[in-house]
Design a binder for these strands. Structure first.
Length: 456
RNA sequence: GUGAUUGUAGUUCAGUUGGUUAGAACGCCUGAUUGUGGUUCAGGAGGUCGUGGGUUCGAGUCCCAUCUUUCACCCCA
């Protein structure tokens, strides 16, 4: 027990059964991305720290995994650096880090290849990212993100298509009870202006983002603690209490934010998106306008959204938004982009909790050939070859073993059918074909077996 | 980074105020069944009690450190 090798904290293996389920999710997402015209992209696990740092706020910088330089990593460090602490030492011992999300490396890629890209550039990316966070439920130190971004257009069609894609993916995965929470950074700007707390915008956003978690009373308390005036807090409560259908909420907001240009722009965007979603004939679009949705990442400037699966104990499973100037920090301003990301690991946990994995779509090997002696083994090899030529996922037990052991193997692997080959079968050419689920057996030619297995 | 919490067989867990040889269930292996799994029955293997120190005549049990698990804060997929 004690000798067992262990994994680093927050990192996980995925066994065959888990991988089958994970691939099922990946495949669904990938199919939808491609259907909407996104092309695949991969970037390395590591980026230079100069690319990563400063993009995710102070908190993000803390959660970045830094990679020690190769060779004599202490070579450039003086004893003065050492005594003045890790801040001085870090840049001298580490130049690279593991990527924290897929959006920033994507922006780096866009800048690097901007002359070759067809604009608008649409890409999807499904890769692991790393965060040195403390693990807990639905939170890992290594996890996959599935991003799709469009860069180089301000069209609200992008936002609309994101909503369509989210609906398609969740529908295909069998997740029906979910909510796409949508908001707009400009609406939030307008609200902060309206309540007279323009200089406290970050404090305001951080506090209201917790509303559904800690309740109005505590949010108000936190707003006061963060230095907002009582008048601001009262006005904020009035806005945060807006309820009703999306259109009603919009109308109330319109009145409140009249005369605040930023807020008006945000409302117009949301209205356009909702109208366009209707044009695609999506009646049950799961959208809920939520003025408390703020989202952490500081680079969002337009529409923001987040998906929550209802009635499960899990944070958001998808998130995204529009960023007007992500590439600005890399020297290319005015490239507007919008993107979103599925959290596969969380979707997996949710589907497990709701028991949504379809067992029939997840089987690997379809048929196992069981042999009883050397002659039948060799006969079986020929049959195996023919099955595989017909693209039937099949295997033969590799060792001479008792039937009991071979059947048991099929059973444990969940292989739905077996073919038994013994001297009788070799002589007659009629193979014993068994349905492991029902236990029924029949004698068939290989052709008719192939026929039956090809139907499924 | 802060505050709690967990660790005993492959897995999930019992284990009394510190006291003989650390248990169960499931799983695994063998046989009942030399051409049949999943059910049943009989038997068997498997543990440095996370690790390192300490207290004690004696530690799975108490103390310290460390790692790990889970959860909350922060933040977030």
């Amino acid at each position: 027990m004690s000798q067992k090798p262990n994994l680093p904290r927050g990192m996980r293996d995925f066994g065959p059964e888990q991988m089958t389920k994970r691939n099922y999710i990946f495949q669904n997402i990938k199919d939808v991305f491609q259907k909407y015209g996104f092309m695949p992209l991969e970037t390395p696990a590591m980026e230079n720290l100069s690319v990563l740092t400063g993009k995710y706020g102070d908190e993000g910088d803390r959660l970045l995994y830094k990679v020690l330089n190769s060779g004599d990593f202490l070579g450039k460090v003086t004893s003065d650096d050492f005594t003045s602490g890790s801040k001085e030492v870090l840049p001298k011992v580490s130049e690279k880090g593991l990527k924290y999300d897929l959006t920033v490396p994507f922006a780096r890629y866009v800048v690097k290849n901007r002359h070759e890209l067809t604009i608008p550039f649409k890409r999807y990316q499904m890769q692991p990212v790393w965060r040195a966070d403390n693990p807990q439920k639905g939170r890992y130190r290594e996890f996959y993100q599935c991003d799709a971004d469009v860069i180089g257009t301000e069209s609200l069609l992008c936002e609309t298509e994101i909503i369509l894609m989210i609906n398609e993916v969740f529908e295909q995965l069998g997740i029906t009870d979910f909510t796409i929470k949508m908001n707009h950074r400009k609406i939030l700007n307008g609200v902060t202006e309206y309540i007279g707390a323009k200089d406290k915008e970050t404090d305001f956003l951080v506090a209201i983002d917790k509303l559904d978690k800690i309740g109005m009373a505590k949010v108000k308390q936190e707003l006061v603690n963060r230095g907002l005036t009582n008048e601001s807090v009262e006005k904020a409560e009035q806005v945060l209490n807006i309820s009703g259908e999306n259109l009603e909420r919009l109308n109330i907001l319109k009145n409140v934010l009249e005369g605040f240009p930023s807020g008006e722009e945000g409302i117009n965007d949301i209205e356009s998106i909702l109208a366009m979603v209707q044009k695609f004939g999506l009646d049950d679009h799961h959208i809920e306008l939520d003025v408390t949705l703020a989202r952490g990442l500081s680079y969002y400037t337009g529409t923001i959204f987040e998906v929550k699966v209802n009635n499960v104990s899990m944070g958001s499973v998808t998130g995204g938004g529009r960023y007007d100037d992500l590439t600005g920090v890399f020297g290319v301003p005015d490239l507007s982009g919008v993107g979103f990301s599925f959290g596969v690991d969380r979707i997996y946990d949710v589907m497990e909790e709701l028991d949504l994995f379809p067992s029939d779509k997840l089987t690997g090997t379809k048929v196992l050939i069981i042999h009883l002696d050397q002659t039948s083994f060799e006969y079986g090899l020929g049959a195996l070859n023919r099955l595989r030529r017909k693209s039937i996922s099949s295997e033969i037990f590799p060792d001479p073993a008792k039937p009991k052991k071979q059947f048991s193997y099929a059973n444990k692997k969940g292989i739905p059918y077996v073919i038994v080959v013994g001297s009788e079968e070799v002589n007659t050419g009629l193979l014993t074909f068994k349905d492991m689920h029902t236990g029924n057996e029949e004698k068939c030619t290989l052709e008719s077996i192939i026929g039956k297995l090809s139907i499924d």
